[in-house]
Design a binder for these strands. Sequence first.
DNA 1: CCCCCCCC
Length: 470
Amino acid sequence: MVNLTPKAIESVMSGDLNLKPVVQVLEIKLIANSKDRYRILVSDGVSTQQALLATQLGDRVRDGILRRGSVVQLIEYICSTVQNRKIIVVLNLEIIITEWEIIGNPKPCPGAESISQKTTDNENVMQSKGVSLNGSSSSVPPPRVRTNSRMNNSNNAPNFGPVVQPSYKPPPSYKSHGAITKNEAPARIIPIAALNPYQGRWAIKARVTAKSEIRRYNNARGDGKVFSFDLLDSDGGEIRATCFNAVVDRFFEVVEVGRVYLISKGSLKPAQKNFNHLKNEWEIFLEATSMVEPSPDEDTSIPQQQFDFRSIDEIQNVENNSIVDVIGIVVSVNPSVTILRKNGLETQRRILNMKDISSRSVELTLWGEFCNREGLELQQMVDSGFSPVLALKAGRVNDFSGKSIGTISSTQLFINPEFPEARRLRDWFDTGGKDASTHSISRDVAPGTKQNEIRKWVSQIKEDGLGRIR
DNA sequence: CCCCCCCC
């Protein structure tokens, strides 16, 4: 016997975010023009309601463990407004039963699809982009499950009055002031993970973890300037924000790495995966009307950085060109050398070695400015007999003669950082790890081809000078 | 609307 949470839909839609109800999934559809975002219909046995699955839950659909008939517990969710309709955005859920017969004879929750009357322009814009969230461009839904069409509901469903920012439950004191108009109420702060282009008003509260320089460009589409910065929120969601031209002037000085901001009124575009390695399929584009305001409180629930450390042992099996975080002890640092790039420009290169508890070591190649900033500092430490901890955020794995790691422009290096992993590594190193035998996953890992052996010799000679070759 | 992620 399965018990769905009574009145779950009603409670969630009226703003109860702590209920964590058990509901049944009646329908799952891929959102039009999306590769991995799903719209689902959930039921409490009496009422049904549309919901969006956060991207990170898509795997469960693709893996087949979340499907039509699944009984799930909604763990983290928010109510949001998409195309003027209230919708649940599910950020996390637990699957109770993968498949169960449809429970009860649930009907669409009344009021959930009410439409405010002044927003048809916005809808047209959404539709002209081919975005469909109401199933109108999808195949006909199965007979058992009624898909709510906007027309049906605006005409027939009971209307609970004008829906104004339904996701925002106004505090009681607002009620005596009459209707809230679109421009008055502050947008609700939502998790970064819930951001998507189909959403109307939103705000996020997030810490800036990285900030680019201003880059000027001149191409077929014209010239201009651009900069971007990366954001992290208290739920661990991350997203990049990008500004162009006049918007650069407006926000470049305002945005500081490490500070927390309230950000709203940007537009969401698909992330450029080639250049943006954050775990988010969207990117925020800030515009002239966007808001980027320092948060009045220093939100300590948002860490300064978020890492996903891989042990060096794991790096061996990581795909070439992957972007990874690594933490290790720097055991050697080579001098900085000047490299002539294929494009004719010169750059600096410095190779160092780091080892970790997996008793593996790896070569890290620092490029450009990293050589004379962190690289020099590391070299001085190692030269003076101290082996520092180095945390590397966003290094790029390459597989020339074994696996090694290189810096890219968005790499960040942290020398002797404070966090627990660093402490753990330090303790390990100081209590025997220093002398533990280490196997390098770089250069001499595989026997390699004759070609590779020769290349290795040549590069070693260039690296160390002839003095060390006997 | 930008952008090469460098070398053997």
